[in-house]
Structure formats: C-alpha cells, structure tokens
Amino acid sequence: MHFEYNIIESDFANAGKASSEIKKTMKQLNIDAQKIKRMVVAVYEAEVNAIAHAFGGTIFVDIDSEKICVLIKDSGPGIENIELAMQKGYSTASAKVREMGFGAGMGLPNIKNNVDDLDIKSEVGVGTEIKMVVNFI
C-alpha cells in the first residue's frame, strides 16, 4: 500500500496531513496504539523539518502487514553534519521559524527515539532523504 504527499516550503499551517492519514490507516490495521503514536510523532517532526529547511519535497508512505516505512525526500540545503544535527538542542532554524514555536533542535533526536529504524542521506546543496521504519511485530 502506497501513498504520497507534497511538502510545500514554509507552509507550516498545513503540516500534519500525512501523519493524520498514517494514524488512521494504522488504527484500521489494529496496530498497537503506542506504535501509532511513535510513528505519527516522528513523521510530523520530519515533515516540519522539511517545511522549515527545504524548498519543498515529498512524503512517500509504504505499508505492508509487517511494517510501515515513511520516506521524506526534499530538495534543500542538505545537512552538513548529520552527527551534529542528531544532538539534542542543535538547531540551524531561522529566527522567523523559531518565533512560530519550531526550531528547538529536538527534531532529529526525537525522530530517532520514536522509530525502529532511521536512515538519513543528505547532500549539501541538493537535499535530504529521511527513511523511518516502525515494525508492527
């Protein structure tokens, strides 16, 4: 099962559509409530990251009876030092973004805590791909 969602640069107001749909689908599959919550929180974080930093992108969701895999692909500045970005509190968000209540530097650490597998590929000046997996069993 596959769905896709577009991410529009700086459109924080519409963040969360993908995570809502993912939540509903996982509920229908009778997935454990805590697993649903973990995935929804991770996807929402990653989506907000892409909205904040990139020039738009796409969310690809793939679900089968064993796992859910969400890939968020953006074209943007890329992450220079992934290791540093994974540290709690590290942030490169602009003042404008922080004013809206985002950019606390908890995005990537929070995602890592919530998913079973996390894979980040990034190229400076090209974009970032974040792949998150939550296993059902």
């Binding site: 099962m1 509903k24 689908t25 509920k27 229908q28 599959l29 009778n30 997935i31 679900i63 089968d64 009876s65 059902f136 069993i137």
Partner: peptide, 15 residues
C-alpha cells in the same frame, strides 16, 4: 477503527 484483529486480514480489507 480496526478492520480485523489479525493484521494480515486487516491489511487485505484495507487494500
């Protein structure tokens, strides 16, 4: 919300 207790049956129904 669940379509079935069994996840593979639920998956078939969702499809």
């Amino acid at each position: 919300m669940k379509l079935d207790e069994d996840i593979s049956v639920a998956f078939q129904k969702l499809t």
